[in-house]
């Protein structure tokens, strides 16, 4: 902090100090997320269904945010999904080998009613569009951990587009179901 009245010639203004903060936390995911992560380590995507409005949440956070009630029923989902919307990111991810521009999309897995954010690849960025069908490309099984990163990215599927009004409403069996 400077005080203009007292800053003499040999009294330089201090404009900053280094005061690094290190705090250690043992982060917990939450009970619902822990169950989701346990299953994704087995290569399975799961959601949770709201007992009141029947909507299926992924990744589950332990409650239906709309109804404010706990969710418990687990629902196994497909690893196929529909593009709800997307963006093409031109800024690199620090420490990540993916090079920009890359596509980040809101994807609704079949059987779920809400989107998850993930990468879209093996595609021409200019051709990505809302309603597009995509499928997960998993990492090799030996690399699976407790993380959504077990899916490396999603890639386009050769299936007809989902009409906008049906996005987020497909059964686990997909467009044909």
């Amino acid at each position: 902090m400077s005080d203009e009245n007292n800053v003499g010639e040999d009294n330089e203004t201090v404009t900053g100090i280094e005061a690094p903060i290190y705090l250690k936390y043992n982060f917990t995911a939450g009970a619902a997320a822990s169950r989701f992560l346990t299953r994704i380590k087995e290569g399975v995507l799961t959601g949770q269904r709201c007992p009141r409005c029947s909507q299926v949440y992924i990744p589950p956070r332990g409650s239906c945010a709309a109804c404010g009630v706990p969710t418990e029923e687990e629902v196994e989902l497909a690893d196929k999904a529909t593009v709800e919307s997307f963006t093409i990111v031109s800024i690199p991810i620090p420490g990540n080998p993916i090079e920009p521009p890359f596509v980040v999309a809101n994807l609704v897995p079949d059987g779920a009613n809400i989107s998850v954010i993930h990468l879209l690849s093996e595609c021409d960025n200019a051709e990505v569009h809302i309603g597009q069908r995509v499928q997960a490309v998993w990492k090799p099984q030996e690399e699976w951990g407790y993380a959504l990163d077990n899916i490396r990215y999603f890639k386009p599927l050769d299936e007809p587009d989902v009409p906008v009004e049906r996005i987020g409403k497909l059964p686990v069996t997909g467009l044909e179901g």
Binding site: A29, G30, A31, A32, G62, S63, P70
Partner: peptide, 14 residues
Amino acid sequence: AGAANEVELIIPVL
């Protein structure tokens, strides 16, 4: 509170 997250702590009380 172990694995419980904030929402899971709040919901039963509410």
